[in-house]
């Protein structure tokens, strides 16, 4: 005998699909999604695309300096942020934190750091310390702490607790337990997260300049404002090549680690 066909839970399905459809229609209306406007604009759009090709290769030499600045900002942000992320991650790991209030405060601190996107930090620091690469480096430091601490604290929560307990039993204090029992166990993950954060930082530092926080984004912003789209294309191509190279390097380092 053939078993009865399982019947789906219709009210649930109708509810979910209805909610999704309503949300989509409301959003489409809210952002002014209109096909006719798109059709009208597309002509101007193709003209723009024609203008932005071919890229202005004569502009390339002027990009070297800002591109290096972008890399410097990313390095500083990753190193400082990577170091600061360690205590934040340890205190937010349930199995290592000294007491519950510390855990609670640190956990929420971490979550709030993560809610703000990188460009918000860049805008804040550019206002606080003035336009330039220093603001960018500070913004990426905060961003790196947010990225690494969350991932690293999750890795720390899944370590083997036998080793830290042994150190405690042998009379080691809390700091020694963390240093010799906990951190080395998740060292590989930490390095791989730091490399991942570095990749993100290179991408992010490209756009930091849009709000005046240094790097190649500053040039991008001036050329964009002047509608020099051949140059914009050139900058974006250069950025893509740089990002791909950095990712290739960090990927090969990561492969060797594991």
């Amino acid at each position: 005998m053939i078993p009865a066909r399982p019947s789906p839970n219709w009210p649930l399905w109708i509810g979910v699909v209805g909610f999704l459809a309503a949300m989509t229609v409301w959003s489409a209306y809210g952002i002014g999604f209109s096909a006719s406007e798109l059709a009208c604009n597309i002509a101007g759009g193709t003209r723009l695309l024609e203008e932005s090709w071919p890229p202005d290769f004569g502009f390339l030499p002027r990009l070297a300096g800002p591109m290096m600045e972008t890399v410097y900002i990313a390095i500083i942000g990753t190193v400082v942020g990577g170091i600061l992320a360690i205590p934040v991650a340890v205190l937010a790991a349930r199995n290592l934190t000294p007491n519950r209030p510390t855990w609670f405060v640190d956990r929420n601190f971490m979550n709030i750091l993560r809610t703000l996107p990188d460009l918000f930090w860049a805008m804040l620091f550019a206002t606080a310390v003035g336009f330039g690469p220093v603001a960018g480096a500070l913004a990426l430091t905060v961003f790196t702490v947010a990225v690494i601490s969350k991932l690293y604290s999750e890795s720390l929560e899944s370590i083997d607790m036998g080793l830290p307990e042994a150190i405690r039993a042998a009379g080691g204090n809390w700091l020694q337990m963390i240093q010799f029992g906990a951190l080395p166990q998740a060292m590989q993950q930490y390095v791989s997260y730091a490399l991942y954060a570095f990749e993100l930082n290179i991408r992010a530092s490209v756009v930091l300049g849009l709000v005046g926080a240094g790097g190649i984004g500053m040039i991008l912003e001036t050329q964009r404002a002047n509608f020099e789209y051949e140059r914009v294309t050139m900058i974006i191509l250069a950025v893509l090549v740089a990002v791909l190279i950095i990712e290739e390097i960090s990927e090969s380092i990561r492969k060797r680690l594991t």
Binding site: E37, L49, S52, R203, R224, F227, Y229, I236, L240
Partner: peptide, 15 residues
Amino acid sequence: AFPEILLAIYFVPIV
């Protein structure tokens, strides 16, 4: 490979 903000730089004049 494209961060969304770079794409937006192109889409803003287009649409």
